[in-house]
Amino acid sequence: MKIAVASGKGGTGKTFVATNLFNVLSGRGERVTLVDCDADAPDDLLFFPAEKISETEVTHQVPVINKDACTWCGRCSNWCNYNAIFYVPTAKVIEVIENLCHGCGACSFACNSDAITEKPVVLGTVTSFRTDRGYPLVEARLRVNEMSPVRVIKAAIKEAGEDGVVILDSPPGTSCPFIQTVDRADYVLLVTEPTPFGLSDLRQSVETLRTMNKQCGVIINRADIGDSGVKNYLREEQIPLLGVINYGTDIARSYSEGRLITEESEIMTGFFAGIADKIISEHGTGSN
C-alpha cells in the first residue's frame, strides 16, 4: 500500500509526519519504505542514519536539430506544447531551449526531414539507502538548474517497489510534481495548518484529489493556533479528520535538530501509530 503525505501549502509538516510514520512502522518491525518525493529539496535523510546502496541517474531525451537537414517547415516548433523550440525562419534561427523541454518526443515525430535526433540530458538522481534499522529509504533529487522533477519522482516511486507500506513524502503545491506523487498513492494523508493560507491550499489539494478519485484524510498541525476555518471546511465537505497536533516547543526543537519526536515522546508515538493503523485497517496493505 502506498500512502502519500501531501499538503498544498509548504511548511505544514509533511516531512514531519512522513518521517515519524515511517519511524513508528519500522520500529514495530513492519515492512515499510520511505520515499522522499520532494525532489527540489529532499530532506528526509536528515532524520535517519543511513547507508547508500545504489544511485541511478534519471535522464530524458531532448532534441538536437541539424540545421543542414532542416527545411524550415516549422512543424517541430508548432507541435511543441512547451515553447521549447525557438524558431524564426526569416532569420534562419532554430534553437532548442533545453530547460523548457519535457522530453515528450513530439518534435522528432513531427519532423518530416530527419533533421532531429535526440540526446539524453540528466534530470536528477534516485538514490537508495538503508537506514540503521535496515529499512529502505529512497530519495528523489532534482539536478540544480533543471525545471521539472516529475520524471525523477516517478523513477523513485518505481525504485521503492510494492512491498508492504510505502510512504511517499510529497512535494508541496498541487501542480505536476504533487500529481505525479499522489497518482501512485492508494491513500493521501493531507497535512495542513489552521490558517487562511493553509485552508486555501488544502481546498486546492482536496479538489485536485477528487478529480483523481483519490481517498484522503487530514491531519491539522499546530492545531491550537490560527482559526477554525479548516475544521469548518472539513465538516462541510465531510473529509475525515484523522488527528490534530498542537504546537509544542518540544516538537519544534526536536525537529529542528534533526531528531524524531517518535523517539522521544510516547504520546506522539501512540498518535502516529494510531494514524497508521487507522489508514491501514480501512484501506488494507495491498496496492492498486
Binding site: S77, Y82, N83, F86, M147
Partner: peptide, 9 residues
Amino acid sequence: EGAGPASVQ
C-alpha cells in the same frame, strides 16, 4: 511555460 521565447518568436 516559455512565454518569453514564444513572444520573441
